[in-house]
Design a protein around this nucleic acid. Structure first.
Lengths: 197, 197
DNA sequence: AACTTGTACGAACGATCGTACAGTTAGTTT
DNA sequence: AAACTAACTGTACGATCGTTCGTACAAGTT
């Protein structure tokens, strides 16, 4: 089946909308995202943007899905490409820090912004964000569990993720890249400590 | 000078507005805060609320100030009341966890929500939030520096605050109080490790 | 060639946003 | 008692919000 012309153009437009939407949301939040603004910036009509999703909530959900796909491709997949063990864990953590520091999204980690925005309100967006967060934590925990000599992978994963998230928060809020150095030092010393204990 | 009647009523109203504003903002953010909604919930007129602040930005700044005062009273002052050293550091960290876990603000830590919301946009609100965040970090660092045997108080403070913030984030997003146990365990082991090293 | 499908558009809707302003009420000052 | 002031109200404004609708047209289907 050929997929040029109308259908291809539609999917391309949709991708462009979601790309821009994820960028905006990482800075202004998923509620700060407005259909009219999105339309203006992309130089398409408001109803054109709206028609792709049917509701703002569906736009938000699609934006989260699109951001998750970018995150998986940049952070998760490279780590899963190497064998389990200390190497994979380090690659995962380094990949995350590079993803945040490199500003894949202009506001830093997309999920940090969106989690903090929706953590306390009910709804489908919050549910999806919570589920993605849980999956991320499980991935870090399972990756840590495959490292020999780790007594409590859940606890280790908690502490490692804490370092990553604070690095992101600090670097964005204070425009200070040294937060990543702090996080890298914390990760290193915590992993050394785990290996020895 | 007597301050009953008109003046007292005004200040009381202002306090009530800011109390409610801080509660709402901890859940929906400072942008989710709307003057009309605030007026409806407090059963006063929209222009009555507006007149107290003159602009939405001023309302947001006042809300941040009010939340900071609550935070200082609940977390900072009790710690400063005991002598510097390990006891003060533990009281500070335990106080923070109790402040977050006890839901002084319904959406968890007010500043976690507001920092994540404004970290990537310019403006006076962001500047104020960033300054308060820096002051908090300095307080933790200085408190840690007064503990004997701590080689790098800045690094230690970074890691401790990371545990606190992730506990808040996890517990709110997943409605899971065990995140605080994880944070307490992390704090304890990190402080033990610092004392030994 | 006739018909269906899907993208995108422009115009309009009711609601809500922040803000402005004049007026009322009640405490304070003289 | 008169003058003043601060808290608060009601109404209205322009802008923007999400959403609905009818339409135009290109592409795919039969």
């Amino acid at each position: 089946m050929k997929v040029d012309g109308r259908v291809e153009r539609g999917e391309q437009t949709r991708r462009q909308i979601l790309r821009r939407a994820a960028e905006i949301a990482s800075v202004e939040g998923l509620e700060g995202l407005s259909i009219g603004r999105l339309a203006t910036e992309l130089e398409v009509s408001k109803s054109g943007v709206f028609a792709h999703f049917g509701s703002k909530e569906e736009l938000q959900l699609s934006t989260v899905r699109a951001a998750a796909a970018i995150f998986v491709r940049q952070v998760v997949e490279p780590a899963l490409a190497v064998p389990p063990g200390p190497g994979r864990l380090e690659l995962l953590l380094d990949g995350w820090l590079a993803y945040s520091e490199g500003r894949t999204f202009p506001g830093g980690c997309f999920f940090y912004a969106v989690q903090a925005e929706f953590d306390a309100r009910p709804g489908r967006v919050r549910d999806q964000v919570a589920e993605l967060g849980a999956r991320w934590h499980e991935l870090v925990r399972d990756t840590a569990a495959a490292v020999p000599g780790v007594p409590d992978p859940d606890q280790l994963a908690f502490e490692l993720v804490a370092f990553l998230e604070l690095a992101n928060a600090r670097s964005v809020l204070h425009d200070d890249p040294r937060a990543y150095d702090r996080a890298r030092a914390a990760v290193r010393s915590r992993l050394d400590h785990a290996a020895r204990g």
